[in-house]
Every structure is written in structure tokens, then in C-alpha cells.
Design a binder for these strands. Structure first.
Length: 253
DNA sequence: AAAAAGCACAACCGCCTAGAC
DNA sequence: TGTCTAGGCGGTTGTGCTTTT
């Protein structure tokens, strides 16, 4: 049994929104707030699908949107978040006030991908291109329901990893907890191996290359592990100190 | 100047999930 | 407990603009 269509498609407009449609949508939401998107088009006098109205509002009409070019800081934050979260655009967007998931997704595909490729970094794995894939041992962060998590591992990967194929006992569930102190890691790095990937977090402050798990990179600017705060390097991994990202609230399943 | 290629981004499509019943 | 639906998400496509040939 197939799904019923989200709206009556025979009598809906498609394609670019007109100024008049935008005005109607804005006026309606100002008067009634965001509510039932399914009934909104009819109530607002729009010949549009509810989904289309929602998308238009969220991505372009919301008053709190920050339009315009991405800053270098936003670029780097997106890269860092993508290295951690993969193509979870909504999660990434949640860390960038005024930016939408669609906007970030487009920006990634048109700008950042190329930028990383120019740096010699695979945009999907965030590892240097041509670097042999390291052998990955499983570290499971989950405590229960192992079989279910294995099923998830087959289908969940957002970065092109097929967990079941390459790592039968792979657990892709990621939970990020307050940093665990480990004295033997160079540069105070901690490598979270999950989903066939390395996620690097830190008890201190990391340079960009280190945050991507590129240890001992020539581009490393971690001051040989002597840095102890972002103020000394100007680097605030994932915005932990600036408050952009509360890593304790992150959870990827 | 015109055509082709490349780029940027708005919008759509289909799937997934949570919640209501 | 199972079914249905609205909302949400990520992938993909369409289209207009810009740059190159």
C-alpha cells in the first residue's frame, strides 16, 4: 500500500515562488504562526503543497535567517561538523544560527567539497586522498541491543561506509561525552573510532588538521601539544568554548 | 556575438519517524 | 499492537546566471 500524496497535486503550483505567494505566506504565518502545514495553503489562499510552504518559509522567508556569503569561520565550522556528523545537514545547521540545512547542503556541494579536494582531503572521509584506509577495530559505545545496532550499521552510514560489509561487528552509534583524559595521546588527541571513521575530540585545543584526525600533519598547528586553550592558538574546536556547540548534547544514531 | 560549459541555488521527491488513533 | 498521517530530512533535479571558448 503506497502512501497517500501529501496534498492534491492536480491543483497546486510548482516551481519558483512569486512575490505575491511569498507575501501571502508571510502574512498568514505572522497572523497565525507556524502550525498545520497541510491545511495552511488552503487557509492562506495558496495553491501550493503544504510541504512546499514549509520549505519556503523555513529556508527563505523566516525573519531570523542570515542571508549572504558564508564567512571563513562558518566554512571551517561546517567542515568540522561534517567530519563529525556526516551529511546530517539539519544537525549542522542547528549549530549555525541563521543558516538552513538546505543552504548548508548546497554550499557544501558547490564550495566546500571543492575546497577540501584542493587541500587534498577527501570530503567524505575527511582523510587525505590516496591515504590507505586504516584497519579499524570496533569500539562500541552502546551498551545494549547489539543486534539492532548491527542492523543499523548496515544502513546508517552517511559517509559512504558500509559497516556490515567491512566491519561485521561495527557499531555506528556515536555518543560524545565530556572528554576522557588520556595521557598517552600525542597532542592530547582522543580518537573515537566509530563507523569506520576516526572522530577526534580533545581535552585541549586542536588545529584544523588534527581535528580531522590527521595526526602529525605538516599543517598541524597545535604547538606540539603544548597548547592548553583556544586563546593560545585561536582555535576553538567545534566551538566548544565559544558556546556554538555543546558537544554533550550531540548524539548520532 | 553566440554557443557551450560550468556554477549556484531554489525547489521537488521520496523515504523515515514520531505520534495519534 | 498495528495502521495512518504530518512533519522532517537528505538526495536529486531544474533552471537561471556567469564564464569560457
Amino acid at each position: 500500500m503506497g502512501r497517500s500524496p501529501c496534498c492534491e497535486k492536480a491543483h497546486t503550483n510548482k516551481g519558483a515562488w512569486t512575490k505575491e505567494e511569498d507575501d501571502r505566506l508571510i502574512a498568514y504565518i505572522r497572523a497565525h504562526g507556524e502550525g498545520c502545514w497541510r491545511s495552511l495553503p488552503k487557509a492562506a489562499g495558496l495553491l501550493r503543497c503544504g510541504k512546499s510552504c514549509r520549505l519556503r518559509w523555513i529556508n527563505y522567508l523566516r525573519p531570523d535567517l542570515k542571508r549572504g556569503n558564508f564567512t571563513e569561520e562558518e566554512d571551517e565550522l561546517i567542515i568540522k561538523l561534517h567530519s563529525l556528523l556526516g551529511n546530517k545537514w539539519s544537525l549542522i545547521a542547528a549549530r549555525l544560527p541563521g543558516r538552513t540545512d538546505n543552504e548548508i547542503k548546497n554550499y557544501w556541494n558547490t564550495h566546500i567539497r571543492r575546497k577540501l579536494l584542493n587541500r587534498g582531503i577527501d570530503p567524505m572521509t575527511h582523510r587525505p586522498i590516496n591515504e590507505p584506509q586504516p584497519e579499524v577495530k570496533t569500539i562500541s559505545f552502546a551498551t545494549a541491543s547489539v543486534e539492532k545496532e548491527e542492523e543499523k550499521a548496515v544502513v546508517t552510514s552517511s559517509n559512504g561506509f558500509s559497516g556490515k560489509e567491512r566491519c561485521p561487528d561495527l557499531n555506528l552509534e556515536l555518543r560524545i561525552s565530556p572528554p576522557y583524559q588520556h595521557q598517552n595521546q600525542p597532542h592530547d588527541h582522543q580518537i573515537l573510532k566509530t563507523g569506520g571513521r576516526n572522530f577526534t575530540t580533545s581535552t585541549t585545543t586542536l588545529c584544523f588538521s588534527c581535528s580531522l584526525g590527521i595526526l602529525n600533519s605538516e599543517e598541524c598547528s597545535c604547538s606540539n601539544g603544548t597548547s592548553s586553550s583556544s586563546s593560545s592558538t585561536g582555535y576553538d574546536f567545534l566551538g566548544l568554548e565559544s558556546g556554538v556547540l555543546d558537544y554533550r548534547s550531540l548524539e548520532m544514531k
